[in-house]
Design a protein around this nucleic acid. Sequence first.
DNA 1: AATGAATATATTAATATTAGCATATACGGA
DNA 2: TCCGTATATGCTAATATTAATATATTCATT
Lengths: 87, 87
Amino acid sequence: MNAAHKRKADLLKAIGHPIRFCIVDGLLGGEQNVATMVDCTGVPQPTVSQHLNILKSAGIIEGQRIGNQVHYMVINKEAKIIVQALK
Amino acid sequence: MNAAHKRKADLLKAIGHPIRFCIVDGLLGGEQNVATMVDCTGVPQPTVSQHLNILKSAGIIEGQRIGNQVHYMVINKEAKIIVQALK
DNA sequence: AATGAATATATTAATATTAGCATATACGGA
DNA sequence: TCCGTATATGCTAATATTAATATATTCATT
């Protein structure tokens, strides 16, 4: 089983969930903090946090703490391309 | 939960598996029949068939029987774009 | 130091995905 | 019609994902 295929499939899999797609899409649209994502996704905050973790582990996003909040951003170029291709 | 997000996420999820990514990638590269996919993926034929079914249900591929064989092709434009974006 | 807001972690039950095997079906040729 | 090749389907056990709840942490303000 091709390792490159696994890598790419894992990337798609990470974004391939409604909540996570919504998060990445929102981040590309300028949203930043978790509270906004909770509103936008309609799921409880800990659930959002879990999905943020999955995206972080996949190397798709990164968070920067600014005071009380954490500002997330998409750091993966391929992820950006994929989400934007689905506009 | 946004229905458009769910639709797009489902598409990504369908391709977001090593075997299925390999299949779609191979189809875009000119491969067609199941036997080739069995070789390329290294998994047993029934397993390939199951994944073909998942891709078919997701509206990504379509198969045409030609005599003894079935020729598959990618019929989803977004799927093409996504896989090609990951070249 | 106490409080409140923002976010993260742990745990767990429910559910979904996956892989493989056995078997079935479809078709072409003898 | 029987056989072999190509592909599909049914079933099941193992594993992974998901969502929710309870709780913990981090930081700013007072």
